[in-house]
Amino acid sequence: MRGTVIIVGALGLAMAAAIAPVAEDFGVHAVDGRRSGYTYAAAETRAMQDDEFANPGYIWVEKGAELWQRTGGESGQACASCHQAAADSMRGVGARYPVFAPELGKLINLEQRINQCRSERMNAAPWPWESESLLAMTTYVRHQSRGMPVSPVVDGPAAPFFAAGKTLYHTRRGQLDMACIHCHEMNSGNMLRAQRLSQGMSNGFPTYRLKWQTMGSLHRRIIGCDKDVRAETFAAGADAYVNLELYLAWRARGLPVETPAVRN
C-alpha cells in the first residue's frame, strides 16, 4: 500500500516536472524576457544561422564587402575612401540605427544613410530599395555590429518619431483590424497554424528568410505583416516605417545584432 502511494507520488512529481514550464536558457538571445526570433526558430534553422559558412546570408556580407571597396558615381570614390576599414568605422553603427538626422529634421535608417552617401558624397545613383546592392551593403554594415546589443537613442530630437512609431505599433489596421501588438505581444509564443508567433524582434535584419529564399529588409517584412492583416501598406523607406523601425529597435534593446540572421 505504502509502496503504491510512493510510486503514484513519484509519478505525480515526474508528470508535474514534465508539465511545468521549464525556464529555457536562450543564452545571449534573450534579455529580460525579450526574445530574439532565434529562440523561436527550429534547431536546423538556428544551426544554419550559427554556421558562418552554411549561413546563406554571408553571400550578401561578402557582396557588401566587395561593394565597400568599389568606386561609384562621378566622384571616383568608394565607401572605403572616407570610411576606411568597415570593421572599425562601422562597428556599432548597425546597433543604434535608425537615428535622428538634423539635416533632414527626421529619422534616417541604414538603407537611407547608405543612399544619402551615394547621392551626396559619391555622386552616384541611389540603389533601389530591396536591390541586391542595397541589401548587400546594409547587411555588410550591420554585420559589423554582430553580437553588440541593440541600443537605439529614443529621447531628445528622436522622441516624437519614437512616439509616432509606438503609436503605429499599437494602432489597429487593415480589414482584420489588428495591431502589431496583437500577434507579437498578446499572442507571442502561441501558434498561428503551424507557426509559432515570435515577439517580432528586429535584431536579425536584414534577414535570410527561408520563405523568401533570399535576403530581405525589415521594411519588406513589415509590408508582409501589413498584407497579412489586409492593411494598406506604406512604401519601403516611408517615414511611418522608419519611425516604427526605431520603436522596434527599442523593443529589441539589449538583444544582440544577429545580421545576417536566418528565419522561417
Binding site: M191, L192, R193, A194, C225, D228, N264
Partner: peptide, 8 residues
C-alpha cells in the same frame, strides 16, 4: 512539411 501561419 508544415504550412506557416504568416503569409508575410
Amino acid at each position: 512539411v508544415t504550412i506557416g501561419g504568416c503569409g508575410g
